[in-house]
């Protein structure tokens, strides 16, 4: 019995240690953003801007396509059901609300985790295994301030922006099906979208996307800074980074949706 409990404990030990390490890194990042600039040294705005360009601007095209096709698929799937009830104009509402509350932020986060999170881990972990992190340390340059903070801020700012893009693109996708296939009057489609889409639908989605951005940045940097074992280690930590980002994003999504649902936000 005791050995069984021990086995369960051993199984959860590594994820637990990881979560603790990620929490510690998160607190360090917060320190370097809010306290560090006043008592120690400021982080670099220039490299933050570079990270914004990398994680935000360069993700636009892929987010554009993913969201557009998600909107198209969502419209077709919901029309399949709603037409039977004779309320096909509700397709507009359904697409708008589900994009804004759920699919916009989550799909954007998954795309960005795959594209940006993996790149962050690959870059930092290859720096780690090539002594570059140690070199920063011996130059008295804090790796969290120098590497993690710009990436964290970049994602924190750009995730909501990309999510807004995804929301709009998804609704456009829905509109394409609604207009060309379901023959819904364009004016009616837009009216149905605007009337039932509340402001809180949009900002809960944007809040979610910021949390997802935090997850991607922290997991990506943590796996990078704790990589070991040469080129193989770089590959391994990159995989682990993407997989754990995905899992944490879905978990956080479930938790946040639950909170919003039960608090009626």
């Amino acid at each position: 019995m005791i050995s069984f409990i021990e086995q369960i404990g051993a199984f959860f030990r590594r994820p637990f240690e990881k979560a603790l390490g990620e929490l510690r890194l998160f607190l360090q990042v917060i320190y370097w953003i809010f306290v560090g600039p006043f008592v120690r040294k400021p982080f670099s705005w220039r490299s933050t801007a570079n990270q914004m360009a990398f994680s935000g601007v360069h993700s636009v095209i892929i987010v554009f396509f993913v969201a557009l096709f998600t909107g198209i698929v969502l419209a077709m799937q919901s029309a399949y059901q709603l037409v039977q009830f004779g309320v096909k104009s509700l397709v507009a509402t359904l697409v708008a609300v589900s994009m804004a509350r759920e699919l916009g932020p989550v799909f954007t986060a998954l795309v960005v985790a795959g594209r940006v999170g993996s790149a962050i881990t690959a870059e930092i972990s290859s720096m780690k295994v090539n002594e570059q992190i140690e070199a920063l340390d011996t130059m008295a340059i804090n790796p969290v301030r120098f590497l993690a903070v710009p990436r964290f801020l970049g994602l924190l700012v750009m995730m909501p922006c990309l999510t807004i893009l995804a929301d709009v693109m998804g609704m456009l996708g829905g509109f394409i099906i609604g207009y060309f296939s379901l023959k819904i009057n364009p004016g009616l489609y837009m009216n149905m979208t605007v009337k039932f889409l509340l402001l809180k639908d949009i900002y809960t989605g944007l809040f979610k996307s910021m949390i997802f951005g935090v997850i991607i940045a922290i997991v990506g940097c943590y796996e990078g800074l704790n990589a070991s074992g040469g080129a193989e280690g770089v590959g391994r930590s990159t995989t682990v980074s993407v997989v754990s980002s995905f899992i944490l994003i879905i978990l956080a999504d479930c938790l946040l949706t639950g909170i919003f649902y039960f608090l009626n936000i």
């Binding site: 720096m127 090539n130 002594e131 570059q132 070199a135 920063l136 011996t138 008295a140 340059i141």
Partner: peptide, 27 residues
Amino acid sequence: IKKRFGMLFQSSALLDSLSVEENVSLP
């Protein structure tokens, strides 16, 4: 203390994403 010493690493440990000038000027 670290600001008062320099270190040459076995693998040089230059930052790959920065040019030679940026590497040397970093400290």
